[in-house]
Design a protein around this nucleic acid. Sequence first.
DNA 1: CGATATCAAGATATCGATATCATTCGTTGC
DNA 2: GCAACGAATGATATCGATATCTTGATATCG
Lengths: 336, 336
Amino acid sequence: MSHAKKKSPAAAQPGLTMADLAKLAGVSKITVSRALGDSPLVTAETRERIQALARKHGYKLNVSARNLRLRRSHTVAVIVEMKPSSSRTMWDPYPLSLLGGISQELTSAGYSVLLTTRHDAANAAVQAADGLILLGQGEHEDAVKLYDRMGLPMVVWGAESAQDNHIVVGSDNRHSGVSVAERFLSIGRRHPVFIGNSDHPEMAQRLHGFVDELAGHGIKPLLLRRVDWTLESGVEAVRSLAARKVHFDSIFACSDLLAMGAIRALVELGLSVPNDVSVVGYDDTPHGASFLPPLSSVRQNWQEGGVLLARKVLALIDGLPVSSQVLPTSLVVRAT
Amino acid sequence: MSHAKKKSPAAAQPGLTMADLAKLAGVSKITVSRALGDSPLVTAETRERIQALARKHGYKLNVSARNLRLRRSHTVAVIVEMKPSSSRTMWDPYPLSLLGGISQELTSAGYSVLLTTRHDAANAAVQAADGLILLGQGEHEDAVKLYDRMGLPMVVWGAESAQDNHIVVGSDNRHSGVSVAERFLSIGRRHPVFIGNSDHPEMAQRLHGFVDELAGHGIKPLLLRRVDWTLESGVEAVRSLAARKVHFDSIFACSDLLAMGAIRALVELGLSVPNDVSVVGYDDTPHGASFLPPLSSVRQNWQEGGVLLARKVLALIDGLPVSSQVLPTSLVVRAT
DNA sequence: CGATATCAAGATATCGATATCATTCGTTGC
DNA sequence: GCAACGAATGATATCGATATCTTGATATCG
């Protein structure tokens, strides 16, 4: 028989405690706590001395103990709505840029980022979080209710809607639509098409802005509903327009991939971009910018959005007044 | 003077404790603990009763308390090497797919995913993690040492290297190189070019496989060093080849963007793809697949990689024997 | 000079869960 | 009929930090 013993799981390292430091410094542990916490209740001299000692011995705070005592976790859960096989979810660069901003801001404020997917949100650790950030594209309606029930400070990325009353940070989708309409009008386009999903809150706002601005000039765009945001979907969209013999001279697509697909189909049909048809995409992806011809697109600032999301949860956690916010977008005009 | 008081930060919700449940059930709190933990030390009957009670009252475990007592955090930190303005980091879809797999696997094992960037890795919460997953592209050398010092179970995504002895999960970069070489040979190419950065461990292995396989047929490819993985970089690479009047008939590029840039430059030069020059990219991105002409590319399975990374940290945490692993890649042949 | 304010630091209780040792009760065996 | 046993449960100590209340020493004032 073997005497090979299974290594003890998660072998707890020796690690000093405050009590140890206290003994070393010849003070009580509460003094150590205060010294390390930069409390004004200890002399500058002893504070220095104890902090130096802590550094020297590589003291590490036990986060669990502090969190238990303080009854908070110093953690914000980020819930990513991840439909396993959908076209645009966690796999795309978007939420990731948001995550970057969030992570940067939260960690520099001493908070941790707990990453979860919708499915795991019942997780005990999520419930222990001090706050919630919800990332997802239009899947909110029911989800929000679920999380709201947890009674945690929560901030959502997306489009603000009238009926729900949680804090929302998102891009100015409406203005994006207006900008694109203005652009089309300024270059004399009179028969615009909108490709996207009007059930999606963010896209719906883009559509509204687009429609309203055009309406001011007596123009009514054609709405071409597309659920998928893929290149193929864009191709099909334009083909269906051609099949229906619709006359159009400009396309506002709700994603760069849709736009690129549309352009490809236009070229197939012998139409010239931008001479015959102008096309504007959304998200200003690197691929769109490198496309031939380089794609005009609406850019949103994901990273800044992430930072804002983080700041707002933190403010909520601190009990400060917080309001929703929309971030400006910019239309990047390139060749199309 | 105002009596408007700042809302108490992080107002601790009432939330039942095990002691409360115990009182309700008329048992001791330790029995509650055992019942909720499915311990065999309590009757099936009382276990059911207490679990029902817990459900009914919406009892939530206090994670901090448990972690403190058990001296572990049930958390794995994922450290993303995030060079702020680099071309391929957290902003790209890659680490995100990995994250998806990691998150899925860890949460279903009852662990939490703590997301951090390299810069914040000194963070107390990271040090409290039970394990570490390091994501990054070739930035490991120094970083690994740093994290190793923390003495935590650690798993790294990337290329296995001889000198360091930590667990690595990654794609079979060498085999990818071999596959591409075989492909070029099978279609009669004799003058291949490799575009990439040989200082990058993963790319270096691709290069080795490529070179070795070709060497078996008496062919020595040209190495064109490119640090950036952008489309522009691909364009410049091919232009420089043309400027130097190099004769070549095939290109293995270390990213799809590089490959697409290369193709664009080739077209500009009046060369036909794939008639004059074959091109293979890397990562099999959606954009590459939708490129015109559709790009041939090497696909790696990010999500499965994520799952594996997670499983291996968990195994390490449990003190089980763990070894590095390479995942198969596949060459997706399309039009180029 | 005595009384009070001020300041640094200590003693103790506490956060909520679980490991360990102790207890109770009903069984079983001889 | 009694000892020994085992199953179910309980009592207590503990994880490591911090809030609160005290204590002791020094400074300030009339």
